[in-house]
Design a protein around this nucleic acid. Structure first.
Length: 213
DNA sequence: AAGCTAATCAACCGCCTGACG
DNA sequence: ACGTCAGGCGGTTGATTAGCT
């Protein structure tokens, strides 16, 4: 699920990162930090652009990154924050320890957005859902930019998740009339010498000594 | 088994912002 | 005040995998 590696006309490598490249970047950043991403690949012995190195570090290599499935709580928090902040993925990711902005954004587009759409479709077919699934007063509860009731969204998502096996398609969902009866009634840096990097001797001496270790 | 389509997510691109000279 | 540069952000692309016919 990654782009095929290739080298562009400037000799910059692009596409998927190899394990060796990851190791070089990780080792270098852990040792020297990253005060200058543009210069970093040169000193780290990587044929990558600085942006690519930064992205790789931020989204895959930095310590504490959480991989794998999102918890229910995380998903609810994303929905809530997206409602409050819009597409400010970095701000949303900042509230989710261990998740990168890219990761959150992908999860939103691949999972949550669709589920919310599904929920709203269902919501519009069931007046009862709108009434009973919300434990909040309609005047005071939160709404998204399109006017959707946020609490209903989350409750609806809960329900869809619980009943996922029974709902296969949007068509099926919108044709269900008896579903509402089954709805729950109470649903709810390290320090670094910056001048060091501009020191010409750094070029050969440090990169060599680093990789000779 | 083969072909097709949808889903997933890593990586890229272009733009914006702030720092600095 | 202006230009340049680097970092960061959000949108988009594309390769791979999974599932369906």
């Amino acid at each position: 699920m990654v782009r095929t590696p290739f080298t562009d006309k400037n000799g910059i490598k692009r596409g998927a990162w190899s394990e060796g490249e990851d190791n070089k970047l990780r080792a270098f950043v852990e040792r020297f930090g990253h005060p200058n991403w543009r210069q970093l690949p040169k000193y780290a012995g990587l044929m990558r652009c600085g942006k690519s190195c930064r992205l790789r570090w931020m989204n895959h290599l930095r310590p504490g990154l959480k991989k794998g499935n999102y918890s229910h709580e995380e998903e609810q928090l994303i929905i809530k924050l997206h409602n409050e902040l819009g597409n400010r993925w970095s701000a949303i990711a900042a509230k989710l320890p261990g998740r990168s902005d890219n990761n959150v954004k992908n999860h939103w587009h691949a999972h949550l957005k669709k589920r919310l759409r599904l929920t709203n479709t269902y919501s519009s077919t069931s007046e009862q859902f709108t009434h009973e699934s919300s434990q909040f007063d309609s005047q005071s509860c939160e709404h998204d930019e399109d006017g959707y009731n946020l609490s209903n969204m989350i409750n609806g998502m809960d329900w869809i998740e619980e009943n996922n096996n029974h709902i296969k398609t949007m068509e099926q969902l919108s044709s269900i009339n008896t579903v509402e009866q089954s709805l729950p009634s109470n649903s709810q840096t390290e320090t670094f010498d910056f001048n060091f990097w501009s020191e010409p001797l750094f070029d050969d001496f440090w990169t060599q000594s680093f990789f000779l270790q």
